[in-house]
């Protein structure tokens, strides 16, 4: 079983210290973020069980939370995850076109991963970037004012990243 590193365990201690004594459950969501970010972008049952024992919770308490929030992936995802917004304001500015373009370029459907494991396409609901639509989340940042050309450039950038 994978274990958190000493460095990470220290971060957990710092996180828990943000809350009053006995309220360490509050550190659950930050901890799940940390786990997902450092373990291939998704949360396995083993990871969640480990988080549960770190915070002295029952595993079900962790599953309940992890399945509630849309940012937590409970299945493996590609190395680069494109999360394209499709809600009202983005739709008004052509998000349908962007999604169709990515599907065509990568040859995958929504919620699918390319066979090489490089890309996953997800559609998401409003990310709070309506003035910069259409947009998507890629990694921890937003890519905004998307066009077909911009999307192509991002895909190339990812591929280069992978070779570099």
């Amino acid at each position: 079983m994978i274990k958190f590193s000493d460095e990470q365990l220290k971060q957990v201690q710092e996180l828990v210290a943000r809350y009053p004594e006995g309220k360490q459950k509050s550190a659950l969501i930050p901890l799940l973020h940390m786990a997902q970010d450092t373990r291939g972008g998704w949360l396995s049952a083993e990871t969640m069980d480990e988080v549960a024992s770190l915070l002295q919770l029952e595993p079900i308490e962790v599953y309940e939370v992890a399945t509630f929030y849309s940012m937590f992936n409970l299945q493996p995802v590609g190395k680069h995850v494109f999360e394209v917004c499709q809600t009202g304001p983005c739709m008004l500015n052509g998000s349908d076109r962007i999604i169709a373009h990515i599907k065509k370029r990568l040859g995958i459907g929504v919620s699918e991963t390319t066979p090489d494991g490089l890309f996953t396409l997800k559609t998401v609901e409003c990310l709070g970037a309506c003035g910069y639509a259409p947009m998507m989340q890629y990694g921890i940042t937003y890519r905004e004012h998307l066009t077909e050309e911009k999307v192509d450039a991002i895909i190339e950038e990812c591929k280069r990243d992978n070779h570099g």
């Binding site: 459950k25 509050s26 550190a27 969501i29 309940e64 939370v65 929030y69 849309s70």
Partner: peptide
Amino acid sequence: AGAYICGEETALIESLEGK
């Protein structure tokens, strides 16, 4: 971690409590 409902103040509190 991705939930519009957490903008509702009591849902936000629940979430802040790790629920």
